[in-house]
């Protein structure tokens, strides 16, 4: 077996172990939330008897360890469980499967994240490479300054500035990104342009500066001097000699930012009223809709683990010492 496959399998197993640990942490933290669904939903009608009855119906009166194992075993068979909402009164059950709640929201979030990533990743690579090529020039300084400026402002501020310019002063894009399942692809792009742009501006600086720094760091290596003395042009030095050795640090930062696009966008979703998974989770926490909260948290954890795994794999594949062992 090629050693790379062994390394990747190893990382995969570690990823699964991590996921289990995370599920435990999620479960314990939710147990520690004050109040529970029964109290939250019954509100003023919460007498001791009604609360106890609703708990019993939901199975909340059982031991937490049992609850955890129920959740995990259901998860392993692909069942996210049923939402608590829709169970207004005892006996009536209009609840929906968590999957049906989460899936469309997740789709929306992934759409927005991909949209932003497709703009931001190539752009930041391009800017990082060109600023490294023309380091310390006016271009380099302006790019560094402007990306640093955008990363320094809070997301909602950038969002409102964009709305001010691109919706109010120059009405190009809509300020609300209220898409639904029936919105067509191009219309969807149009509606979600501003949130995607906001996210791009937020994550651009980090990725671009890492690209620039990783390349400049390598330019001091003896093999770059050797390449120069072999007549390589500045462009060749960067693209052919520095960049192939710079992927590992760059990819780590890119995947971290991509994870952030999925997990950390709730503010942007709120500003643009975009129906993403972040909003769903915040609402679910407020109403103590525990199955939904748990599923969202697990999806976020999985996103991080998968993207980090991807970064590891790319780091390995671009390292000739690992790819071509002695």
């Amino acid at each position: 077996m090629h050693p790379i496959i062994a390394i990747i399998l190893n990382r995969l197993v570690l990823g699964i172990v991590t996921l289990f640990m995370v599920s435990l942490i999620i479960f314990i933290s939710i147990q520690m939330l004050p109040g529970d669904f029964a109290e939250a939903i019954l509100a003023r009608a919460a007498t001791e008897e009604t609360v106890a009855a609703l708990r019993k119906e939901l199975g909340l009166d059982r031991h937490p360890v049992l609850l955890y194992f129920d959740w995990i075993t259901a998860l392993m068979s692909g069942d996210l469980g049923n939402s608590y909402t829709g169970r207004g009164v005892i006996g009536a059950d209009e609840s929906r499967a968590v999957f049906d709640l989460v899936a469309p929201r997740l789709k929306n979030t992934l759409f927005l994240a991909s949209f932003a990533a497709i703009i931001a990743v190539p752009l930041s690579l391009f800017l990082g490479i060109t600023t490294a090529l023309y380091r310390n020039s006016a271009y380099d300084r302006i790019m560094n300054m402007s990306t640093l400026t955008t990363i320094s402002f809070p997301e909602f501020f950038i969002a409102y500035i964009l709305i001010l310019f691109l919706t109010s002063l120059f009405p190009i894009f809509p300020s609300l990104a209220n898409v639904d399942a029936d919105t067509e692809f191009f219309e969807r792009l149009y509606w979600s342009a501003l949130p995607a742009l906001t996210l791009t501006l937020v994550i651009l600086a980090h990725m671009m500066r890492m690209t620039r720094a990783a390349i400049i760091n390598l330019l001091a290596s003896p093999y770059i001097q050797m390449a120069r003395l072999s007549g390589a042009t500045p462009r060749e030095l960067i693209l052919k000699h520095a960049l192939p050795n710079a992927w590992a640090p760059i990819v780590t930062v890119i995947t971290l930012n991509l994870a952030n696009l999925v997990v950390g966008v709730v503010v942007v979703e709120v500003v643009f009223v975009y129906p993403g998974i972040g909003q769903l989770m915040v609402d679910a926490v407020a109403s103590r809709d525990i199955p939904v909260v748990q599923s969202c948290a697990l999806i976020f954890a999985m996103t991080y683990i998968l993207l980090n795994l991807l970064a590891d794999i790319i780091g390995i594949v671009t390292n000739p010492r690992l790819l071509h062992p002695k």
């Binding site: 290596s221 003896p222 093999y223 001097q225 050797m226 390449a227 120069r228 003395l229 072999s230 007549g231 390589a232 042009t233 052919k240 000699h241 192939p244 050795n245 671009t318 000739p320 010492r321």
Partner: peptide, 27 residues
Amino acid sequence: ESEKRGLWGNRMTYVAQSAAASFNPAH
């Protein structure tokens, strides 16, 4: 610089002290 680049790796070449550090690990 670009005129010299035309000579480097062409009419004049260089052998460095540490070969291990002077080869690009990626190629």
